[in-house]
Nucleic acid binder design. Structure first.
Length: 264
DNA sequence: GCGACAG
DNA sequence: ATCTTGTCGC
């Protein structure tokens, strides 16, 4: 009834090799036909997952699509399932990417007109020990522009959460909404972002796939009503609500198949 | 060796 | 990730 325990070193090695292999396809500049400044960007997707506290292998994945500039919801879909892969820092994609890809693929198969032009992912992009987090992983496999959004900082290349918060407090930065995350190596990994100047806890935005950091930050700005960009926030709230409503029946079914339910 | 470590 | 109400403040 629980997820698998510790993984073999071989598995981690295989996963590392898979990340390094997929990383060769990563594109970190704007690779799309629409223009941010125009009204050609209409459909922004968001994905998130919630988990049962009784059985952490029971999960609900949610994909939403919001329409710009109103940020109104035009699509949402869920998948309820049992996960058999544990969460290991640096390997989140192997736990969450399969079901999220399935939700995207279903939209594509249905030729749904609201298929997202860009996807916001709860989890990092290149802000990752090997420069290939969940947002990159999803972007490459779905061949879709993606943006990574972390609610906590994954400590990479000497980056440190409290230091980022401190630099937002500096007087020279008191009017800054964005702080570039430059590691000890001199590489830029992403930005710390605060939706309001009074926000104490920033979010961390990094390039996923087929987008530049500058464009990624602009899209986050366009979709941020609260701390977390609205597409991810909607996917978060809806996956949590769906889980709480249905988990009783799910906990009773040891071998329940993944079930999709589209509503819109 | 020890601690840190997206969700 | 998950638990969890009210409450203080703009």
């Amino acid at each position: 009834m629980e997820e698998e325990g510790a993984l073999s070193e071989n598995q981690l090695k295989n996963w590392t090799e898979e990340q390094d292999g997929l990383k060769k396809k990563l594109i970190v500049y704007d690779d799309f036909t629409w223009k941010l400044s125009s009204s050609m960007l209409k459909y922004v997707g968001g994905v998130d997952m919630s988990f049962s506290k009784e059985d952490s292998s029971v999960a609900c994945a949610c994909l939403v699509v919001l329409e710009l500039p109103s940020l109104s919801l035009v699509y949402h879909d869920f998948s309820f399932l049992r996960l058999h892969v544990p969460y290991i820092p640096g390997f989140l994609a192997f736990r969450e990417a399969p079901v999220l890809l399935q939700l995207l693929q279903k939209m594509k198969d249905d030729k749904n007109p609201f298929y997202p032009q860009v996807l916001l992912v709860d989890g990092n992009g290149i802000l990752h020990p090997r420069g290939f987090g969940l947002a990159c992983h999803l972007g490459v496999l779905a061949n879709l522009p993606t943006i990574g959004v972390g609610k906590n900082l994954h400590h990479v290349d000497g980056l440190n959460q409290s230091e980022v918060r401190r630099s937002f407090q500096l007087k020279e930065n008191e009017h800054e909404q964005v702080i570039t995350l430059v590691g000890n190596s001199g590489l830029t990994w992403g930005v710390g972002f605060r939706p309001t100047l009074s926000s104490l806890k920033p979010i961390y935005v990094s390039v996923g796939h087929r987008i530049s950091l500058d464009s990624a930050v602009n899209i986050v700005k366009m979709t941020c009503k609260y701390r977390v960009p609205e597409p991810i926030r909607q996917a978060d709230m809806r996956s949590r609500a769906y889980l709480q409503k249905h988990q009783l029946s799910l906990l009773k079914e040891p071998e329940l198949q993944p079930t999709d339910q589209t509503e819109h």
